[in-house]
């Protein structure tokens, strides 16, 4: 197990109406660890990802970030959220702002950096994701893959302790998936703590320290990628892998 836990979920439960989407979830993510969450749709993996920065409140159980329990909605929660970046399936860039302004906005509003300092940092990050040339465009002028890389730069601009990825490549054309995965691989190599909900098994194999397999709101397996992909223990995981790895 992780020596230095950054994200800890203990006994987390959540319902949507009668549907029990998260059942007694225990999960620890250590500093610098890359945890990939996979599972069939409806298994609660996206919900799990969203509970970590309390975009989805939970009913019972505790979630701690770097030793601090998640507070209720308010300034304290906003402060904690700034430490955990999130990348969404649908990018969610601010449509009325340029790429540069998208990356700079929260630096100015939340980190209270000056505009010039923020823009300088934004340009460095856009350079890192290979999009500096597009800094003055609006999100709608970019391809999906480019928008997602901007979204990653925007999350990185807050200098977060961890990044959450909620199916970051699921809305992308196949040829754009790689450009996003490459950026994520690089982040993983640089030692960023990451929780990645994805269907990209290649990424899970190559970048993950651990694979968490979820089904029906429970964590069924939590192991290293080699162990999981070569010798899954549960029938549910065997069934899942046989279906997706066939072609």
């Amino acid at each position: 197990m992780a020596v230095d836990p950054l994200i800890e979920l203990r006994n987390v439960n959540k319902h949507y109406g009668k549907l029990h989407v998260l059942k007694d979830i225990d999960l620890t993510v250590g500093r610098g660890e890359v945890v990939v969450v996979i599972g069939p749709s409806g298994s609660g993996k996206s919900t799990l990802c969203r509970t970590i920065n309390r975009l989805e409140p939970v009913e019972s159980g505790t979630i701690t970030l770097d030793g601090h329990p998640l507070p209720d909605e308010g300034r304290e929660l906003a402060r904690l959220r700034a430490e955990v970046g999130m990348v969404f399936q649908s990018f969610n860039l601010f449509a009325h702002k340029t790429v540069l302004a998208n990356v700079s906005l929260a630096q100015i509003k939340v980190r209270k950096r000056g505009k010039e300092e923020a823009d300088k940092r934004s340009r460095e990050l856009l350079e890192r994701v290979g999009l500096l040339a597009h800094a003055d465009k609006y999100p709608a002028q970019l391809s999906g893959g480019q928008q997602q890389r901007v979204a990653i730069a925007r999350a990185l601009a807050m200098d977060p302790k961890a990044l959450l990825f909620d199916e970051p490549t699921s809305a992308l054309d196949p040829e754009m998936i790689n450009e996003v995965l490459e950026v994520m691989q690089q982040l993983a190599r640089d030692g960023m703590t990451m929780v990645v909900v994805t269907h990209e098994m290649g990424f899970a194999r190559s970048a993950a320290n651990r694979v968490v397999f979820m089904a029906d709101g429970r964590i069924v397996e939590d192991r290293t990628p080699e162990e999981f992909f070569t010798a899954p223990e549960s029938d549910r995981a065997k069934d899942f892998l046989s279906k997706i790895l066939k072609h």
């Binding site: 990018f91 969610n92 939340v110 807050m158």
Partner: peptide
């Protein structure tokens, strides 16, 4: 305004007032 943009703003640590003022109301 797509709810995702509000969620993105909140996930960056912006408060409700900041999200409303900088992201939601202008659009």
């Amino acid at each position: 305004v797509p709810t995702g943009q509000g969620e993105a703003a909140r996930s960056l640590g912006m408060t409700f007032t900041q999200t409303l003022g900088a992201i939601v109301l202008p659009q």
